[in-house]
């Protein structure tokens, strides 16, 4: 009896594009859901011919690879788009970047070559690890160095996290492939530094993509666990890179495989 009909067939996917984007400055407080909404609007404003799913509430075909937590900045977020009409990836990146608020920045886009992609696997599969940089304002570098040494020496560092299912314990140590204290470099851009003159230790670590995932917060909990490190100000984490992990512990550009025979630099 219902006159309700699903809307006519949606156009099929003719091109897949993988996009690298950043979440910077104040917009690091954008949650993944917030980003997804903003991104869908940006697609419409930029006139990107994205393909839609079938059904009463068609969704644009977008799949995200492990998104950074709310509050963490990132230089290396990735997603894949299905297009219903071809578009040059560079033009797509430029149009999307212009349509998004400054602070949500599109850095790169490549067309998935079906030939190469066949061997490269899905985008999410390539995300074996992330490199994080964590700024700890108010923490003496020496103190952080001691904590990191303790962390590295430990076999297991169980930490607790509050999840929707309640408190759960996970091992922060096993997922960490690399962890070190780096010397502060002068701020590249005019990012406001909150406690001028105060010490600011900087931590860099490479964390493997495991389930349940270990996040920068968990590493910090681990440092509290092993060395009682209590930063006086909430630390600021930035994901610098995400992708396949080499045996040397380096992270490779996950889009490199899609660039075919013309790989570019790792993009950092």
């Amino acid at each position: 009896m219902s006159r309700r009909q699903p809307p006519g067939g949606q156009a099929p996917v003719v091109q897949r594009v993988r996009v690298r984007y950043a979440k910077r400055g104040p917009l690091r407080f954008t949650s993944h859901r917030d980003f997804a909404r903003a991104f869908e609007r940006a697609l419409r404003r930029a006139g990107v011919p994205v393909a839609y799913s079938q059904g009463f509430t068609p969704h644009p075909k977008i799949s995200y690879a492990s998104a950074a937590p709310t509050g963490a900045a990132s230089e290396a977020e990735y997603l894949e788009l299905g297009l219903q009409a071809p578009m040059d990836p560079a033009a797509l990146a430029a149009a999307l970047d212009a349509a998004l608020s400054p602070g949500l920045d599109v850095l790169d886009a490549v067309t998935v070559s079906t030939v190469v992609a066949g061997s490269g696997g899905s985008l999410a599969d390539r995300m074996e690890a992330s490199r994080w940089r964590i700024e700890l304002p108010g923490v003496e570098p020496a103190m952080l160095r001691r904590a990191v040494a303790g962390f590295e020496a430990a076999e297991r560092v169980p930490v607790q996290r509050l999840t929707k299912q309640g408190r759960r314990t996970l091992d922060a140590r096993a997922a960490v492939a690399q962890i070190r204290v780096v010397e502060p470099v002068p701020e590249p851009v005019a990012a406001p530094s909150e406690v001028t003159g105060a010490p600011c230790a900087i931590l860099e670590c490479v964390v493997r993509q495991v389930t349940p995932s270990v996040r920068p917060d968990d590493v910090l909990s681990g440092l509290r666990e092993v060395a009682g490190l209590e930063p006086p100000v909430p630390p600021k984490a930035t994901r610098l890179a995400q992708g396949p992990l080499t045996v040397q512990g380096e992270i490779v550009d996950p889009l490199e495989a899609d660039r075919g025979r013309m790989p570019t630099g790792s993009g950092d």
Binding site: P26, L27, F29, T30, S31, D34, R41, T70, G71, S101, P102, G103, P137, P192, S193, E194, V233, P234
Partner: peptide
């Protein structure tokens, strides 16, 4: 002066911090 440098460290401690950030289209 912008209060942002003093506000920013408080935001990780509140729910839905994005609502205080601005930056809307």
């Amino acid at each position: 002066e912008s209060v942002w440098p003093r506000l920013e460290p408080l935001l990780p401690q509140v729910s839905k911090p994005i609502q205080y950030v601005g930056g809307e289209l």
